[in-house]
Design a protein around this nucleic acid. Structure first.
Lengths: 237, 237
DNA sequence: GAGGTTTTCGCCTCTCGGTCAGAAACCCAC
DNA sequence: GTGGGTTTCTGACCGAGAGGCGAAAACCTC
């Protein structure tokens, strides 16, 4: 077993088709949805799969995901894209071995991309039957998103450019799956410097009520906002 | 660009050699070290590279890493192994395209695996010249380790089975790269239920001093101990 | 037994998230 | 325009938890 490496000298090294998959998430009508397309052919005909496809010879995985998604959504609508994990079970595709690298993509709530006929949004807490290992990949994506909502500013990729605290709260609740109070959300995100007031006000709803102040995210690129609760580096004073 | 998928029907789908790499870390003499081997041949002859090798046809990536490492360390010494990320730059290897999936492996500080002649430990803050993109992969590994030290019990994989708080503090300091007080470390890890006293005492050093109480990690599998600082789910009371 | 060393323990402070109640600002109906 | 309903905003209080410090405990050597 020691020098197994030398058995496979460069020319005859085994190779595998590699695909890039994307878990694209969006908050729609107060619920977190994932984008899936319905497989017409076997295997798994009739079940729902993640968008994705083969890695091309001159492409990085990141570029590949972008290209795959181009047929589903306008790529510019993806406010955030990050690599999740790589699945390598030799039998994850019953036809032949493939290796798949999954990405997490987020779309702001104010957009509504036109999807192809076979593609649709599904609430993540009520997914239809999924193909291959795609169900567990979605689960990984959710875990990642939920964790990052707490210690980064990822929410910028789910929120419209400008919003009230109440609207932002809805997004957090939908994505996290549990209640969050507007008071806390506002204070925490403001103190961390994640949010800033635009100075403008939203028009009050038809039922009245005090008009909400509008906010925006200070940055629209991923930033870690809390260097992890415990065992922080000593604060210089 | 829309149906590019169909261009590559199953048989002629492009394929790439895939390799599994490992960033193996250990605290040695109060400093965090990474395991590297010195390349004898071009490209990058004379520079240092991460252990790794080709993914075989019937193997998962996780199994592959284990197999590659078998020639370096005894696999059972790896107390923790997790997937990091997948690198896909078409030109990361100047000879031919390869895709590489990196893993993070941790070895407890009380072990001293016998390494092959071309392989050695290097302090992570003073790495020699590295091959390919391996330098930046090590950087990713460090980032991941440091983050997880704060909100999980990963330290079990760097610590000996039994240790005093002072010893554990050394490990944290080495891995994190900044000072941590023993008082805090003890209190935090005890409250979180990560550590438990063994009831035994360490023999005092040659200079005397109060004998230290010995502790162990409650579990030796990865567990998240702090469900992220902010925006926690409401605590049921 | 005195002095030096190392660990442990208790106390204090400060920050921060969670909660709540009341004030503010708006609508609509009468 | 006045009152009731609705929504948002603000401030105050509370408790948990982390950081820091100093004293006490337990051991050594001389």
């Amino acid at each position: 077993m020691g020098s197994v490496t030398s058995v496979w000298s460069s020319p005859e090294r085994p190779a595998y088709p590699h695909q890039a998959l994307a878990v694209v998430l969006q908050v729609r009508a107060g619920r977190l949805h994932g984008m899936l397309w319905r497989r017409a052919k076997d295997p798994f005909a009739g079940t729902w799969a993640l968008p994705g496809g083969p890695l091309l010879p001159e492409e990085t995985l990141g570029a590949s995901v972008g290209r795959q998604l181009a047929s589903k959504v306008e790529v510019a609508q993806l406010a955030h894209l990050e690599q999740l994990e790589t699945r390598s079970d030799p039998h994850r595709d019953p036809r032949a071995r493939t290796v798949a690298t999954a990405y997490l993509g987020l779309i702001p709530g104010d957009l509504d991309p036109v999807l192809p006929d076979d593609t649709a949004w599904h609430p993540v807490n009520a997914l239809p039957e999924t193909a291959f290992d795609h169900g567990s990949i979605v689960a990984s994506a959710l875990e990642r998103l939920r964790a990052k909502l707490s210690y980064t500013n990822v929410a910028f990729a789910l929120a419209p450019p400008v919003f009230s605290i109440a609207e932002l709260r809805e997004i957090y609740v939908a994505a996290l799956g549990y209640e969050v109070t507007a008071t806390n959300l506002q204070r925490v995100l403001l103190r961390r410097g994640v949010l800033e007031p635009t100075g403008e006000m939203a028009a009050p709803g038809r039922a009245g009520g005090r008009p909400a102040a509008l906010y925006r995210f200070v940055t629209t690129t991923l930033e870690v906002t809390d260097p992890f609760a415990v065992l922080k580096p000593p604060v210089a004073r």
